[in-house]
Simulated assay, not measured.
Amino acid sequence: MLREAGTQGTSGEFMDLLMQASRFRPSFASPAGLRKAPSLVRLSRGATGAGLICFSSILSISGPHQYSRFASAFRGRRDVHAMAAPGFVRGEQLPSTTEAVVEAKAEAVLRHADGAPFVLLGHSSGGIFAHAVAGKLEEAGVFPEAVVLIDIYSHDDDAILGIQPGLSAGVDERQDTYVPVDDNRLLAMGAYFRLFAGWKPEAVKTPTLLVRAQEQFFDWTRATDGDWRSYWDLEHTALDVPGNHFTMMEQHARTTALAVEEWLDARP
């Protein structure tokens, strides 16, 4: 059905269907209601800098594996761990609110870090979690070393509509090489799109880096200024790296990682 919707040019309508159907999946309203708390997967080991905690995106093909190439560039220098969003695996619950999943992820970060310094990082919609978790931790008096947002569009409603065709095509191309996409993953994607529709970031004190792709992968230009690149309304530093939204974390992953490393190392 997903592929047919893409062929017909009705991917947006199919996403609406997934968003509504996802309401009937088992859910949790707070971290206490989770049968299994979020866990982190180690992708790299190192001890020369603050560890990176990466958040998976909310696409159907998402998971810690999306950071495997990126993490390999940090081996011997920084620990890199990745955390999947709850609900993408059979038997897992989905969050009933954005607050529930952000709290669950923040608690997982605190357990994992155990007082050690860390950086929160997210590619694409994973950047939502990186920023939102930073805000939740700051409320508790815990401050990450930095937040790194890699080509995020998720807070921009106009951009979401504009990139939908390219995003759907990119996901379809990768379904056989990332993870098998089943109904659980599609409904999870629908649930997170529903929950985070209209999400707007609130300011945080943590220094933020926005890493933008240099290559365009969809036919959309912002009406106001014609700039198709990822952007961030809040205070941040921006830098551009080779590749498009997907390839910057695939064949160009090492270059992306080294750009992030250089920025982190230059911080006081």
Results as ranks from 00 to 15, higher is better:
Asp151Gly: 06
Ile152Tyr: 05
Ser154Gln: 04
Ser154Trp: 02
Ser154Thr: 02
Asp156Lys: 03
Asp157Cys: 08
Asp157Met: 05
Asp157Trp: 01
Asp158Gly: 10
Asp158Cys: 05
Asp158Phe: 03
Ala159Arg: 10
Leu161Arg: 13
Ile163Gln: 12
Ile163Lys: 03
Gly166His: 07
Gly166Lys: 11
Gly166Phe: 07
Gly166Ala: 15
Leu167Thr: 10
Leu167Met: 15
Ser168Asp: 15
Ala169Val: 08
Ala169Pro: 00
Gly170Ile: 02
Gly170Lys: 03
Gly170Ala: 04
Val171Gly: 01
Asp172Tyr: 10
Asp172Glu: 15
Arg174Ile: 06
Gln175Leu: 12
Gln175Met: 14
Thr177Asp: 08
Thr177His: 08
Tyr178Ser: 12
Tyr178Gln: 03
Val179Ser: 06
Val179Tyr: 00
Pro180Leu: 09
Pro180Ser: 13
Val181Ile: 11
Asp182Lys: 00
Asp183Glu: 14
Asp183Ser: 11
Arg185Phe: 03
Arg185Ser: 05
Leu186Val: 05
Leu186Tyr: 02
Leu187Lys: 02
Leu187Ile: 01
Met189Gln: 12
Met189Thr: 02
Met189Glu: 00
Ala191Lys: 03
Tyr192Arg: 00
Phe193Val: 00
Phe193Met: 06
Arg194Glu: 08
Arg194Phe: 00
Leu195Gly: 00
Phe196Ser: 01
Ala197Gly: 04
Gly198Thr: 10
Trp199Met: 04
Lys200Asp: 11
Lys200Cys: 10
Lys200Val: 13
Pro201Trp: 06
Glu202Ser: 14
Glu202Gln: 15
Ala203Tyr: 02
Ala203Ile: 07
Val204Lys: 01
Val204Arg: 02
Lys205Val: 12
Thr206Tyr: 09
Pro207Ile: 06
Pro207Ala: 02
Thr208Tyr: 01
Leu209Gly: 01
Leu210Gln: 02
Leu210Cys: 04
Val211Gly: 00
Ala213Ser: 10
Ala213Pro: 02
Gln214Ser: 15
Gln214Phe: 09
Gln214Arg: 14
Gln216Trp: 02
Gln216Pro: 06
Gln216Tyr: 05
Phe218Pro: 03
Asp219Pro: 08
Asp219Gln: 13
Trp220Phe: 15
Trp220Tyr: 15
Thr221Met: 11
Arg222Lys: 09
Arg222Ile: 03
Arg222Val: 00
Arg222Thr: 01
Ala223Arg: 14
Ala223Tyr: 08
Ala223Cys: 07
Thr224Tyr: 02
Thr224Ser: 13
Thr224Asn: 10
Thr224Met: 03
Asp225Met: 04
Asp227Ser: 05
Trp228Thr: 08
Trp228Asp: 07
Trp228Leu: 06
Trp228Ser: 12
Arg229Met: 09
Ser230Tyr: 06
Ser230Gln: 08
Tyr231Gly: 09
Tyr231Cys: 09
Trp232Asp: 04
Trp232Cys: 03
Asp233Cys: 10
Asp233Asn: 14
Asp233Gly: 15
Leu234Met: 08
Glu235Asn: 15
Glu235Trp: 04
Glu235Pro: 12
